[in-house]
Nucleic acid binder design. Sequence first.
DNA 1: ATTTTTGATGCAACGGAAGTGCATTTATTA
DNA 2: TAATAAATGCACTTCCGTTGCATCAAAAAT
Lengths: 137, 137
Amino acid sequence: MKEIEKRLNDNGVRPTAMRILIYKYMAEKEVAVALTDIENAFAKADRTTLYRTLKTFEEKGIVHQIDDGTHISKYALCEPGCNCELEQDLHLHFHCNNCEETVCLTEQKIPHINLPDGYIAEDANLIVKGICEKCSG
Amino acid sequence: MKEIEKRLNDNGVRPTAMRILIYKYMAEKEVAVALTDIENAFAKADRTTLYRTLKTFEEKGIVHQIDDGTHISKYALCEPGCNCELEQDLHLHFHCNNCEETVCLTEQKIPHINLPDGYIAEDANLIVKGICEKCSG
DNA sequence: ATTTTTGATGCAACGGAAGTGCATTTATTA
DNA sequence: TAATAAATGCACTTCCGTTGCATCAAAAAT
Ligand SMILES: [Mn+2]
Ligand SMILES: [Mn+2]
Ligand SMILES: [Zn+2]
Ligand SMILES: [Zn+2]
C-alpha cells in the first residue's frame, strides 16, 4: 500500500487516510465510479470531502473524468504514465445499456478527426453505448 | 410555414401553435439549444410544456438530443430524412470552449470503431471540443 | 350541435447532482 | 511549542430534469 502513497506523493497530493481509501476503492473497481458510488461506499465521510478529493485527483492527473452521457460525472484512475490530455492518449469509453456501467477501453484510441476549416480541436470524447462483455456473455 | 406543419404531421406530432413556434426557433438558430434557451425565448410559456415538446420531438424523430459534456441536454433539429439512430447517420458534435456553443457537424460521420470481443455497439457519441470557426476567425 | 373523449398545457412540487462559504480539525514547519 | 497551511465537515444554494394532477382546447363520436 506504500505504492498508493507514492503515487499520490509523486503527483503532488498529500496522502491522507481518506485519499488512500478512495484510491484503493477506485483501483479495486474495474468500472468508472460516480461521486454517489464513493459516497455510498464511505458513508461516514462527508460528501464535500469526497467531492474535493475527486477534483484534486483530477487536477493532479490521478484520475480522469468521464462523460458517459448519463449527465453524471464518472471518474477512473489514469494509467500510470498516461497523458489523458494529449490527443494520442485519448481512449474511448463504453457505457452498457444493460448494467449501466461505464468502463475505460484504454486500448481503443480515439481516431483522428478532420474538422471543417476554422475549427480547432483541443479535446475529444468518444463514448460507445451498447452491451458490455459481462452482459453479452 | 405550412412546411413546418407538414413536417410535424408527417412525424405524428400535432402542430399546435407552441410547437410550431419552438420548431421555428430551433430552425432559425444554427446551434444546439438547451431547454433553458427555449425557456428564455418564450417566457410566457410554461417550462413543462417546453420540456415535453422537446421530449415529443425527440421521440418522433424531429430533433435529436446532444450530450456535449456540459451535463446539460442540448437539442437540434434532425436533417429531413435522417435516421439518427442508425450508425451511418451518426455525426459528430463540436463544442466551443470559448463561446460555449454546440453545433452539429452533420458531414463528419462517426468512424466505425472496433470493440474488444464481447462488446456490442448500439450507439455512439463523439464530441470534439475546441474553438469554433466563429471564435477562431 | 352537443356530448364524449383524447391530447395539450399549466401549476406546483420533488429529487439528484454540482458547487460554495465558512468553521473546525489535523498536519507541517518555523 | 507556537504559527501556519492544508484537509475535512457542515450548512446551504443553485440548476436542471422530472412527475402528478388539474385545467383547458381540440378532435371524434353520438
Ligand atoms: Mn478512461
Ligand atoms: Mn447533431
Ligand atoms: Zn453491462
Ligand atoms: Zn465559439
